[in-house]
Computed example of a mutant assay.
Amino acid sequence: MPLSTAAASADHPARRFASTLSPDDFKAVFRGHPGGVAVITADAGDGPVALTATSVSSVSAEPPLLIFSISSLSSAAGVLARAETVVVHLLDANDIDVAQLGATSGIDRFADAERWSRLVTGEPVYHGVRAWVRCAVVERMAAGSSTVIAAHALQAQLERDVVPGDHGDALVYHNRTWHRLGEHSRLG
């Protein structure tokens, strides 16, 4: 069965188990689980879209694959459902303004023409962020009220590298708040 339809199947294991976990309880569990912050941009021909996500994760180095999820309620969901390519911006604390821009509803995230441009391949990219990765979408999977997108990394730009073992000004989202990791947060 193709990955994109497996979760929708009536005989899928997720459909056979009763759950007593409410949506609010599920959100509360994950509120205490911090996530790295990224902004995903795309353009499927109708103009650029952007959204902030904490669900980006690397899957494989060979071939270079990553995944992320988008809510069907996102204003960018329709474009991301059609886009063949995306740009995943991996942010640090210096990029908090880009993170907030992608997370703010009801605004034109591309109104400031000096903040972004298009790659020669056409995708919208924000300037000066820690790193970005241009990816080809290779799979979409319906997952509840979201879509999980798997993408093959094609090109990357790294503005601010992180020295192995250093905190690197990481930006995380935890308990509905932005946080900067630093020396003070190191435990080991």
Rank of each mutant, 00 (worst) to 15 (best):
P64C: 02
L65Y: 08
T20H: 14
A156C: 09
D24P: 02
I149M: 01
L171E: 07
R16L: 14
R180D: 03
V37K: 00
H179A: 12
R130D: 06
P63N: 06
I70D: 03
F68Q: 04
L21Q: 13
V88E: 09
H33K: 12
S185M: 10
G168D: 07
L65K: 01
G168K: 01
P124M: 02
F110I: 06
S55L: 02
P13M: 02
T5E: 15
A103E: 08
D112F: 09
I107P: 09
L91K: 02
T5S: 14
W116G: 07
V133M: 14
M1R: 12
R31M: 03
V56K: 03
A142D: 14
A42T: 02
V120G: 11
D95T: 08
V37I: 12
D97H: 12
A6G: 01
T20K: 11
V163W: 04
D108I: 07
V56N: 09
R115K: 13
V133T: 12
P164G: 05
F30Q: 05
L154V: 01
G165L: 05
H152L: 15
L181D: 05
P164S: 01
W116A: 04
V129W: 12
Y126M: 06
P34Q: 04
T54I: 09
F30S: 00
A153I: 06
A7D: 11
V137G: 10
G45R: 03
G102H: 05
N175K: 10
A10V: 11
D166G: 04
I149W: 04
F30P: 02
A28C: 05
I107V: 15
N94E: 14
H179T: 09
T54C: 11
R15F: 00
V163Y: 10
G45F: 08
S9D: 15
G182L: 03
A153R: 01
M141W: 00
G45C: 06
L181Q: 04
F68H: 10
S71H: 11
G122L: 02
A151P: 02
A76N: 07
G182I: 03
R82D: 12
A18F: 04
S4Q: 13
W132I: 04
V49F: 08
G78C: 00
Q100E: 14
G144H: 03
R130Q: 15
R134A: 15
P164W: 05
L80H: 06
P23C: 07
S22G: 11
V162G: 04
S60Y: 04
G45T: 06
A151V: 04
T5F: 03
R176S: 15
V162E: 11
V163D: 14
I107Q: 08
G45I: 10
P2A: 11
L91A: 07
L73N: 13
